[in-house]
Structures are given as structure tokens and as C-alpha cells.
Amino acid sequence: MLKQTLTGARSLLTGMKVTFKNAFKKPVTSQYPRERIEMSQAYRNVIVLVEKEDVGSHDCIDCGMCERVCPSFCIKVEGERPEGMKRKRATRFEVDFALCSECGLCLDVCPTDTLGYSREFDQAGYGRNDFLYDLLIPYRDREETVRDTLRAAEAEAAAAKKAAVAKKAAAKKAAEEKDAAGDEAPGGDGDDS
């Protein structure tokens, strides 16, 4: 009996020692919202369309890969081919965040890498529809200008390509002509160079 009491007292004291030591530690909790902790760089939340520098806007080309791979079927993408452009542009990109499980498969498959995660963390709402995100909102007002720039860039690229093709064709033609000329009149004044 006495032995039991002594062991009990000793184990109690050992426990007290541990709690006593810990009582003087700095608290590990942070007082949100007065204090904020640093967010992880890899933080995952609702997806957003990332602005690409070379486009000056998002670069969603409505390929539909994210829509297809999404396990929760929460992405809706629609797009159109603007007049005079080869590349498609998204006209609608909606995410139902209430269904999203933040797996990140859509980011993996995106061919233009235009999807990223939002840094929001405190979404709240009164109904399910509060979590329907229209990802195109930040880009809508400048879409026309972006399209004009892209169209111009595409036209430029096309022109450059055309010029390159034409140049190549011309060179080929010249070479052929030269060959032909060489066949017809050996030692003729072809531009040998």
C-alpha cells in the first residue's frame, strides 16, 4: 500500500515536472486575426487564371483538358475563335468551388500553364452558389485589346512566316533557275556565289 502510494506520488511528480517545464514555453497559438501566420508557398485553394506576360492576360485556349480531367466535374470552359485569329480564347471559365477537392490535376494537365492557385483562405457564403467563381472577371475589360494585340502578333508572325516561306521558295526557285540555266547554257552568267 505504502509502496503504491510512493510510486503514484513519484509518477505524479514526474508528470508535474514535464507540465511545469512546458508552462514557461512561449504559447504556440497565434491570435488570429490580430496575428497572421505565413502561408505556405504551395498553398492550394480555388484555381485562378494566371496572367501570362507574353500575352498580357490569361492564356486559356479552351482546350478543355482541365474540364475533362476534373474528378469532381466542377470546371466549365467555353471558348471561341476570334475573327482573324488562329488561337482560341476562353469566353467562359467557371469553377464551382463547392465541389472542388483541390487535387491540382487541372494544373498538371494545363498545356499553357495558365492555371494557378488563389491565395484566398477565408471564403464563406450563405449558399452553394456563393462559390461559383467566374475566373475571367479580372480579364474581361481588357479582352478586346488583348485580342487586338494577339491578332496583330499572330498576323505579324504569320507575315514573318509567309515571308520566310516566300524567301525560301524564292531561293529554291533561283537555285532551280540557275540549275536550269546551267543546263541550257554552260558557263552562262548565273550568279555564282
Binding site: 464551382d96 450563405y126 449558399g127 452553394r128 452558389n129 461559383l132
Partner: peptide
Amino acid sequence: PMSEEDEG
């Protein structure tokens, strides 16, 4: 998602 009328 629910239709607009159901919101709330």
C-alpha cells in the same frame, strides 16, 4: 449547382 432561385 442549384439554380438561381434556390439560392439562400
